[in-house]
Design a protein around this nucleic acid. Structure first.
Lengths: 204, 204
DNA sequence: GGGTCAAGAGTGAACGATCGCTAAGTGGAT
DNA sequence: ATCCACTTAGCGATCGTTCACTCTTGACCC
């Protein structure tokens, strides 16, 4: 993953991967069919992982669409910040053969639909106001995945900090306005109330 | 650009580039020092181009931070939708040698600061309410550049449509709330008023 | 329990192909 | 005569991949 992330798929040599793992090249070919299989395995397990975590987070979040939405965003951002190696996720799918690419896109779409479901639920109950939930969901997923591109663990913000900020940003993107009843995580509730407070100040 | 976009930097052969251009390989080397120079030229001219367009758009937009902000977002998205070949922009900078990479990052930062300036101006006049303008600016730039990754010209939306929607989304991201005096482009004014209308409905 | 054998996991060496790049030469315009 | 734009041919290096082989482990039969 580190190698693919540093040099890209074509820029990474099988010899380099073997060296990092600490085995010889034919040993890699004993476990994986070819170079592409290495990338496919990496992409699919990673995407499945983040998808699974988001499903779990959403299940824990309860019934409120706003909580569910926040949980997904938080989950994705924390994952991306903690595992920066996945920055290349979306930029290397062009190196996949069609059927491998299709399987990966399917996983990614699951995540986007999950997001879209909560956004639409939020709109239905009046919490979210965006007239274009599908575009908003795609944009949010893009900006959350983008975190992996710039986050550095030696910076000032922890992954949780970044996640909290992105929850705030994303709530704005879907047109969330009014502050709500206290949510479960204290940090999220605080961020949301901050947004709500400023909202009220500005609206007057 | 098409070749780099399809296969990535390392995945593109000099022979392929030469073939697409319609010349032989040494003819390329007569005009460019090496393969990297081809990528550098492409990245820098493209980034300078979008930066110049944004500067022009912001100059035309007048003094209102909201108008200026909207103009930048619209400009970037239209550019990305029209020239999809630039999708690889941010994913190929890792293939650059350090000094080339630094020059490109500098250009990109100019764009981000331009965005940040308008966001902060908007906050100062009370139009935008986000407490984290820097994070918002970065997130917005990420999601606007992301348009190049999925936009297809054979889809239902024109570049202008997509730009309009992203203006709406991005206004939400920076915490824009109240509808304002009519702006210049009718489509933008309409989108903004839609957002405002729904905002008022929801807040009650 | 000792001998046999098959499978698993890995190695060193090398294959053909293709890569980025260049030396040397050609034709035409100034 | 000289430079520009470009060509053909081919260089050495490196790529993904495979061949043939070794070593270890564990199951099996007598």
């Amino acid at each position: 993953m580190a190698a693919f992330n540093e040099h890209g798929y074509h820029g990474t040599t099988v010899r380099d991967i073997a060296r990092r793992v600490g085995v010889t090249v034919p040993a890699l070919y004993y476990h994986y069919e070819n170079k592409q299989a290495l990338l496919v395995t990496l992409l699919e397990t990673s995407m499945s992982d983040v998808l699974g975590r988001c499903r779990a987070a959403v299940a824990e979040a309860g019934d409120d669409p706003v909580d569910r939405f926040s949980a997904i965003v938080e989950c994705i951002v924390v994952y991306m910040a903690n595992r920066r190696g996945l920055a290349f996720l979306d930029s290397e799918i062009r190196s996949l053969e069609p059927e491998n690419r299709a399987r990966y896109v399917e996983l990614r779409d699951s995540l986007q639909y999950m997001l879209l479901d909560t956004v639409e639920a939020g709109i239905e109950q009046g919490s979210f106001t965006t007239p274009i939930p599908a575009d908003a969901s795609r944009a949010i997923l893009t900006m959350c995945q983008g975190v992996a591109n710039w986050y550095r663990s030696d910076g000032a913000l922890t992954p949780s900090d970044v996640a909290e900020r992105h929850v705030l940003l994303c709530l704005g993107t879907v047109g969330y306005l009014a502050p709500r009843e206290p949510a479960k995580p204290a940090s999220l509730r605080q961020a949301r109330e901050n947004a709500g407070a400023r909202t009220r100040d500005s609206v007057g």
